[in-house]
């Protein structure tokens, strides 16, 4: 019996006696695909359909509206500030966690996951508590005329907090799977720390870094909860794209709301595309040399 099953498998036949019956496989696949169509593709299509409902000109006009342009600008600024900070933090944290052992390592891993487990609203409120007028540093900040809450710095801070796990989370398992051997080889060959990083470590993780950056960027541009708390919703000044969408929607300008929302949907599609390329490349670097241990 066992031998027969093995022979079937090694013969490369479809091995029907070790797999589910055909109708089960078809049903499961259909359910999965149906679910994706209903909950992902349909809404995505709806966003674009709604956005273009009143025609291409209306769509462009909605995007050219000054408050919307300002929201786009603020979103880009936030992303441009957040992503490099989290890139640096993520690489350093992943390097430390994957390549060294030190006391408190598992605590650090838990801390990195914190933003995932905390509701974004709470993340925003933390900053209000610290920097807000009634907060710990509020009076001092006001005395020195520094605005953080209900201003751009607060939005950036909240976004940094919410998005900092992405790069680190992506790199830790990748770097752990690659081990320390190549770095140690570089050191014995006389390379310094930075040379080792840029010539050995980084080339091995670059696709993972890209993947992390893409995810981090997508979240930085799309973050709503935390930003909403610290932004103050000042039109043309402290609204990011997601906040602008909400405002437009609440004002019943559906076409404009969906037009702006379609930008985020496009971002999601681009993210997905880059992400799958990066994933494919990561798998390629993992199957390559000497990793067959």
């Amino acid at each position: 019996m066992n031998v027969a099953a093995n022979m079937n498998r090694t013969n490369g036949k479809n091995g029907s006696n070790v797999s589910e019956p055909a109708w089960v496989r078809v049903l499961l696949t259909a359910v999965a695909l149906g679910f994706i169509a209903l909950f992902l593709l349909l809404p995505l299509g709806a966003v674009f359909a709604q956005a273009l409902e009143k025609g291409w000109d209306a769509y462009l006009a909605a995007l050219k509206e000054p408050d919307t342009l300002s929201a786009i600008r603020l979103t880009l600024i936030t992303a441009v500030l957040c992503v490099p900070v989290n890139l640096l933090f993520g690489i350093i944290a992943a390097w430390a966690i994957a390549k060294f052992s030190f006391p408190g390592k598992s605590f650090l891993v838990t801390l990195i996951d914190l933003p995932f487990s905390v509701s974004p609203v709470v993340s925003g409120l933390i900053y209000v508590l610290i920097f807000g007028l009634q907060g710990w540093l509020g009076p001092w900040l006001q005395a020195h005329d520094i605005k953080i809450i209900f201003a751009v710095p607060g939005i950036v801070l909240a976004t940094v907090f919410v998005t900092f796990p992405f790069v680190a989370r992506e790199l830790i398992p990748l770097m752990e799977s690659q081990g320390r051997d190549e770095e140690e080889a570089a050191l014995t060959l006389g390379a310094g720390g930075l040379q080792t990083f840029f010539r050995v470590t980084f080339p091995n993780i670059k696709w993972g870094v890209l993947y992390g950056v893409i995810l981090c960027n997508a979240r930085a541009m799309g973050e709503f909860g935390a930003v909403s708390v610290v932004s103050g919703h000042v039109r043309g000044a402290t609204n990011t794209i997601p906040l602008q969408v909400e405002i437009l929607y609440n004002e019943y300008s559906y076409a404009a709301a969906f037009a702006v929302a379609s930008l985020l949907a496009l971002l999601a599609l681009v993210t997905l595309a880059v992400k799958s390329v990066a994933e494919w490349k990561i798998n390629q670097t993992l199957v390559t040399p000497g990793s067959e241990r």
Binding site: E182, A185, L187, A191, P203, N204, T285, G290
Partner: peptide, 19 residues
């Protein structure tokens, strides 16, 4: 430091730079 010792080290799993 490792770099100053001028040792050649050969690893069990080769540790060649894969890229």
């Amino acid at each position: 430091q490792v770099q100053e010792r001028k040792v050649g080290f050969v690893f069990q799993h080769y540790a060649l730079f894969r890229h």
